[in-house]
Design a protein around this nucleic acid. Structure first.
Lengths: 102, 102
DNA sequence: AGATCGCGTAAGTCTACGCTAACGTAAGCG
DNA sequence: CGCTTACGTTAGCGTAGACTTACGCGATCT
């Protein structure tokens, strides 16, 4: 699962709220939607995007579905960001060296 | 600078291309736009968004402007993602425990 | 079997935003 | 001074996507 999908999925504020609500523990849809400023179908749509991005997993339990965060996708995103961070650190050092030479 | 802005800024594919082009070393706008599938003004607009998100810094040098990545904002984003990752790991462990008890 | 719960999906609307084309501007050069 | 370079900015357009309303469907209860 490419990290780009996770990045795009987490860029929406409402979707981040949805995701953060199932970070600590799995929850059914109605419990996620409760207290959010959008309707339950909207939450369902956000869950689909998060699932397609690999950020969450779905488990059916009777008539309801439990959604849980998937740490692996989050780990991949973390590593991608960290790689960019490292490269940026190196870039600053290189620019500083070039500055000193002129 | 809140990490939400950085997240939203990096969610666009073209803007990511722009950002990655100045990760290793600072560049003027024309150099960034060269080879990209969009016009130079579009690159300028992306640079503005990245700057507003704190991800890059601008330094004027005569008639041109050098854009460089800002590792600090990237570091903050990295830490925010890492915190969510840790929480997700804890959530999975908690769900597993609950599974064993029933 | 009928009723209800818990949820996904489809259709339609409206806003955000990425893009181009055109223009404006400050710095260097002859 | 013009002229060119290297940009930023604006106006306008087109589309992706976030949202609601309405509907459909399987599981559970009585």
């Amino acid at each position: 699962m490419p990290y780009e999908l996770a990045l795009a999925a987490l860029s929406d504020p409402t979707r981040r709220l949805v995701f953060e609500r199932i970070l600590a523990a799995p929850r059914p849809v109605a419990a996620i939607a409760k207290g959010l400023p959008v309707s339950r179908p909207a939450v369902s749509q956000h869950l689909k995007v998060l699932k397609d991005a690999g950020l969450i997993t779905e488990r059916r339990q009777g008539t309801r579905r439990l959604y849980a965060a998937n740490p692996q996708a989050l780990g991949e995103l973390r590593e991608a960001i960290e790689a960019m961070w490292q490269e940026a650190l190196g870039g600053v050092a290189a620019a500083f060296d070039a500055e000193g030479e002129q």
